[in-house]
Amino acid sequence: MTRIGRRLRGWTNGMLDLPQDLLHDMPRITLIGNKELYVENHRGVLHFSSELLKLALSKGSLEISGKGLEIRTILGQELAVEGIIGEIRYKESEESS
């Protein structure tokens, strides 16, 4: 959480320049409490169940685990998740899936 928070703050500080997600094709993740999660710029769903959601990113993948997860909307590369979110794990790997 704190790491993401720091990253978010870093992004906001760098708002005067071009944002990193546009520059480096990185995902923008917005978390509201532990209820809602917005992911932009993902590369598709790898796995989806009510406990675990795996998303493909341009580099690596994002694992979201929690309870009663559901995807409220999917449109293109935007995705909104609802439910009780427990963990968000960011896996960086060179090989893309």
């Binding site: 598709g44 169940s49 009510s50 995807i71 999917i74």
Partner: peptide
Amino acid sequence: QVELFINALTGLGIVIWDVKPVKSGLNL
């Protein structure tokens, strides 16, 4: 592979919502 199906949908630009995992698949 329901996930593939969802990816294919989004690839076509089709909007789906209220995607809920159930025992044997997905509701959307």
